[in-house]
Amino acid sequence: MRSKVLITSLPENVVLEIFAYLSIPERCQIARVCRLWNQLIRDKYLWQRVDLTARPIAPKTLWKVIRGYLSDSLLSLSLKGFLYSVKETKCLTHALLKELISRCPKLVSIQIISENLSAIDSSKFPPNLKRLFIQNCEVTQHWLKKADKSNLFETLQELSFANSKRFSSDDVQYICKLQNLKLLNLSNCYRICDDNVNQLTNALTNLETLVLSGCTITDLALHFVSHRLKFIQTLDVSDCTSLTNQGLAILGVPYCPKYLTVTGCQFLVTDLAILVKRNSEIVRVEFGVKDELKTLNRNNFQEILDSYQNQLTAQVDAV
Results as ranks from 00 to 15, higher is better:
I7W: 05
S9E: 15
S9D: 15
S9F: 12
L10Q: 15
E12A: 14
N13H: 13
V14P: 03
V15F: 00
L16S: 04
F19G: 08
F19W: 09
A20K: 15
Y21Q: 15
R32K: 15
L36P: 03
L36F: 01
R42V: 00
K44G: 00
L46E: 06
L46C: 05
T53W: 05
R55D: 08
I57P: 01
I57A: 03
A58N: 10
P59L: 06
P59H: 07
V65L: 14
I66K: 09
I66F: 07
R67F: 12
Y69L: 13
S73C: 11
L74I: 01
L74P: 03
L79G: 08
G81N: 11
G81I: 04
F82S: 12
L83Q: 08
S85A: 14
K87Q: 12
E88I: 05
L92C: 09
L92Q: 10
L96Y: 03
L97H: 05
K98Q: 14
L100H: 05
I101C: 08
I101K: 13
R103A: 10
R103S: 10
C104R: 02
K106H: 13
S109N: 12
S109C: 11
S114N: 15
E115K: 11
S118V: 10
K124E: 13
F125L: 15
N128R: 14
L129A: 05
I134W: 01
Q135D: 07
Q135E: 15
Q141L: 13
K145D: 11
K146I: 04
D148M: 06
S150P: 02
F153W: 11
F153C: 11
E154G: 03
T155F: 06
L156A: 00
L156D: 02
E158V: 01
L159P: 02
R166C: 07
D171C: 02
V172T: 07
I175C: 05
C176W: 01
K177T: 05
N180D: 11
C189D: 13
Y190D: 15
I192W: 01
I192Q: 03
N198A: 09
T201R: 10
T201F: 03
T205D: 12
L212V: 06
G214H: 00
G214L: 04
G214Q: 09
I217E: 01
I217V: 08
A221V: 07
V225H: 02
S226E: 09
S226I: 08
H227I: 05
R228S: 06
L235V: 06
V237T: 02
C240M: 13
C240N: 10
S242V: 00
T244N: 11
I250D: 09
V253E: 11
V253Q: 12
V262A: 05
C265N: 09
F267L: 11
V283E: 06
R284H: 08
V285P: 01
E286I: 04
G288N: 13
V289D: 14
T295V: 10
N299L: 12
I304A: 06
Y308L: 09
Q311N: 10
A314N: 15
V316D: 13
V316Q: 14
